[in-house]
Computed example of a mutant assay.
Amino acid sequence: MITGKGGAPRLTQKGRQTRRRIVEGAAEEIREQGAASTTLDDIRARTATSKSQIFHYFPGGKEELLLAVAAREADRVLEDQEPHLSNLRTWSAWKDWRDAVLRRYEQQGVNCPLGVLITELGRTTPAARQLTSQLIDGWQAALREGVQGMQEAGEIDRGLDADRTAAALVAAVQGGVTILMATGGIAHLEAALDTTLTLLRNGAGARQATTGN
């Protein structure tokens, strides 16, 4: 057996590929059937793996596999915003990012695999909280870097709190997505994004909105 630091198992390249295939197959199954309806037998059939392979890579069974799928879905949230999210250095790039966000959630519709998985795992469990926090932190950090880059370029008021602005942008998206999941309509998400970006572009108005002054 190959081991890493502390004697923990370290997967070979083939092992990593097999584990990824299981996670991707489980994600597809969950998107189609929902987490509650998906069984390990469904995942085995889709991924052409044996029960022993499932438990080799996920000794904790379905719960551990669901957590791995949730982590993959969290990664997809940010991946679907690229290459725009990592390159918010012009107003054109911000518009492209806005369009990518709207497109992603419009295509997703009322079904949110990540939300379903977090609910299945238990929103108050340490693993679910950590996963959600990592997603929000990474998302906010990327937006903060975009705001700071625009400030350095003189496009946004340097007195604006970049971190609070990034937090407001994340909250705007998540609030709009919550309404989308409840109603099936994307109008609130679009309005939240457009209004927040208008305040950001106006500079002084954005500063007042984020500081409460």
Rank of each mutant, 00 (worst) to 15 (best):
M1L: 10
I2F: 13
G6I: 12
A8W: 12
R10V: 09
L11Q: 09
Q13G: 12
K14Q: 07
K14S: 09
G15A: 03
Q17S: 10
R20S: 12
R21E: 02
E24W: 07
G25F: 03
A26Y: 06
A27K: 00
R31D: 14
G34T: 07
G34A: 06
A35G: 13
A36N: 03
S37C: 09
D41G: 09
D41S: 13
D42P: 03
D42E: 02
D42H: 15
I43E: 04
R44Y: 04
T47M: 02
A48P: 05
T49H: 03
K51F: 05
S52P: 11
Q53C: 07
F55W: 10
F58Y: 07
G60P: 13
G61V: 08
G61K: 01
E64T: 03
L67S: 04
A68M: 03
V69R: 00
A70H: 02
A71S: 09
A71N: 04
D75V: 09
D80K: 14
Q81K: 06
S86L: 13
N87C: 14
N87V: 00
L88F: 13
W94M: 04
W97H: 15
R98H: 11
D99V: 14
D99P: 11
A100H: 06
V101P: 00
R104H: 11
Y105S: 07
E106G: 14
Q108T: 00
G109N: 04
V110C: 04
N111I: 15
N111L: 11
C112W: 06
R123I: 04
T125P: 04
T125F: 01
A127H: 08
A128E: 00
A128Y: 00
T132R: 06
S133F: 04
G138P: 01
A141Q: 11
E145N: 06
G146P: 05
V147A: 05
M150Y: 05
Q151F: 15
A153K: 11
I156R: 00
G159D: 07
L160W: 01
A162G: 06
R164L: 13
T165A: 02
T165L: 11
A168R: 03
V173R: 07
V177R: 07
T178G: 12
T178M: 15
I179H: 13
L180Q: 14
M181R: 09
M181N: 13
G185N: 08
I186M: 11
A187P: 05
A187S: 10
E190M: 08
E190S: 13
A192Q: 13
A192S: 14
A192W: 07
L197R: 12
L197D: 06
L200F: 08
G203V: 15
A204N: 14
A204T: 14
A204W: 10
A206V: 00
R207Y: 09
Q208K: 15
A209H: 07
A209F: 08
